[in-house]
């Protein structure tokens, strides 16, 4: 494990903790897209199908359990916890799951490294993760008033993707045969989706102003 990979995992973990903090202690999910969170549940559930069959390290297994557990609990809170559910922007969060999932299923069936059940599901999870943030970004555009925790959540999530790209570059130059086009391209697409958000995040940070996206 290199420093970029570790930094990526830690920012990912931090993003989840920030979101749980907002939901658990402030009892609010205002500005958070349930559609995106449900897509993340599907992403982790399809990617970590091998959690009981292949062992890499205690660290890996533990992180997999954390990401599965936290994404399930965030969705549970937003759907079933009365106080949290009341703060959910249901009317604004209208993105259709299938609109994103169907192309990813088709793409995974067409473009994969091996045509096996686990491999296609794993590839599907990569494609879906790349676009899972879209409902969240659309919701931000619509509500426009973004509180600090929601802004930090998306910033950390984008940071996680950025560090993973550095990790891939590092591994490409240090490990023989480390070439994974599917992972890289879907990872790059995912990171580019954050570019616009990052631009306005830094702008508001530089001017010391509240984050606001243009209409």
């Amino acid at each position: 494990m290199n420093i970029f990979r570790l930094a990526g995992d830690m920012t990912h973990l931090a993003s989840v903790l920030v979101l749980l903090l907002k939901i658990h202690t402030i009892k609010s999910c205002a500005g958070v897209s349930l559609k995106t969170q449900e897509l993340y549940v599907i992403v982790f559930a399809t990617r970590y199908l091998d959690i009981f069959t292949s062992f890499v390290s205690i660290y890996n297994s533990l992180m997999k359990l954390i990401f599965l557990g936290s994404s399930f609990s965030i969705v549970w809170y937003m759907r079933y916890h009365k106080a949290v559910h009341r703060t959910y922007d249901r009317e604004q969060d209208t993105f259709r799951h299938w609109f994103l999932m169907l192309p990813c299923i088709l793409l995974a069936l067409l473009i994969h490294e091996k045509f096996t059940f686990f491999e296609v599901m794993w590839t599907f999870s990569l494609y879906l993760e790349a676009v899972a943030i879209l409902p969240q970004l659309v919701l931000l555009q619509r509500t426009r008033n973004i509180d600090n925790l929601t802004g930090q959540y998306i910033f950390l999530l984008g940071g996680y993707r950025g560090f993973y790209i550095l990790n891939w570059i590092y591994r490409y130059f240090t490990e023989p045969h480390y070439v994974h086009w599917i992972t890289w391209i879907s990872g790059l697409v995912q990171t580019l989706l954050y570019a616009d958000f990052f631009y306005y995040y830094f702008l508001s940070w530089k001017n010391n102003k509240k984050l606001q996206l243009p209409a």
Binding site: H12, E113, R171, H177, Y178
Partner: peptide
């Protein structure tokens, strides 16, 4: 192994 190296990421 080419196939396995990407599965050690999260």
């Amino acid at each position: 192994c080419v196939q396995e190296s990407q599965k050690d990421e999260l």
